[in-house]
Design a protein around this nucleic acid. Structure first.
Lengths: 197, 197
DNA sequence: CAGGGAGGTTAGCGGTCGTTAACCTGATGG
DNA sequence: CCATCAGGTTAACGACCGCTAACCTCCCTG
């Protein structure tokens, strides 16, 4: 499992705060001085850790896409031979965990992609595409009547459903993390079941 | 019905192009010169039609929220006495029409709200809240076992599902508008049915 | 036919923002 | 004990951007 207990490095602090600020006010809406202030240093001090503001966004987005993909691949590998429906449940669970634990990153994920340099954007798009195709494969195993274009549309729509977590009461008005996760899971399965008919 | 056939006014041209540009590159990522160029005039000419860049965004967001709400109220009124399931279908259909016909606006809707002046933002939030509550009421009629917080979460998630249209192949890779609308509709019903169990 | 408003134009101001330059400081290791 | 270097600091530059000023040109109307 290797859950980290060490103190976060300065670089990680910066990335975390930058993600939060970018998600709140948009990439262009946040100045480097604000990011610096959020970690207790001021403005240009950030350039000791990153070559520029763009690089922070790039590292965040590549990191998100890579994490989602490798997590899914891991779950795929661990569940070898089990029923495809169970594998699908595992994928859904992984995505929900991510959406609930890293809301700012989920927000950035589909909001600021176009602010990247061409090469970075291509990389992120490629990782995203792999992730989608992995889902499409499993979904079509569970619902063989679903054509490939329809399955892809359905998967994107389920992502929309699962990524709605930032809109669910910023305050603690929602009925606890576990119940929310379970509700989202049921809805995702219900949506996919309805798609495959 | 009053479907418009007249030529769009300059103001409407500007709003449409501004919506597209804001959705593509973010509010802060678009300059007034670009908006002007998109309608064939240049930069400061926009100030003959709007008091500022903020005002364009405000009018767009208030317009979206208002249109969604009044459309839903209309559907509610027309369907008086019919089964709540049918009313829910009508709400879903209205939302899908909007999401498919005005993708840039749907994108702006949940992306640039925080760039508004306080008063405008409050207004938009109020319209959005009314829209959500209207849905929650109908959903709870159809699925009486659903508690109010769960119903609200479910509604937000269904919005996430329906608003995923911008992510469905920008090119014509998706299987036609009618089929897409039908798929989204089925998935929304499936998700809600799964939530209410 | 005068004139005035609607709807453009270009020039330019003021502020903000990303980035660089130059400098400082405390820990670290030979 | 001195050299080095990681990790800060402030000052300032250059570009960009929203907006205003000043001006021009139709078109419509009394």
């Amino acid at each position: 499992m290797s859950t980290r207990t060490d103190a976060p490095t300065r670089r990680e602090q910066i990335l975390k705060e930058a993600a939060r600020l970018f998600a709140e006010r948009g990439f262009h809406g946040v100045g480097v001085d604000e990011i610096g202030a959020a970690v207790g240093i001021s403005g240009p001090g950030l350039y000791r850790h990153f070559p520029g503001k763009d690089a922070m966004l790039a590292e965040l987005l590549v990191g998100i896409s890579g994490q989602l993909l490798t997590g899914a691949k891991q779950r795929l590998k661990e569940a070898d031979g089990v029923a495809p429906g169970v594998v699908l449940d595992s994928l859904i669970e992984g995505h929900i965990d991510f959406a609930l634990d890293d809301r700012p990153l989920i927000t950035l994920h589909d909001r600021e992609l176009d602010r990247l340099r061409d090469s970075d954007r291509k990389l992120v798009r490629q990782l995203q595409r792999q992730y989608v195709e992995l889902w499409v494969g499993i979904v079509r195993e569970v619902y063989p009547d679903l054509g490939e274009p329809a399955a892809r549309s359905a998967v994107h729509s389920v992502f929309g459903l699962l990524n709605s977590t930032p809109h669910l009461g910023r305050a603690g008005s929602l009925p606890g993390r576990g119940a929310t996760a379970e509700l989202l899971h049921r809805m995702a399965r219900g949506a996919l079941a309805a798609a495959g008919a």
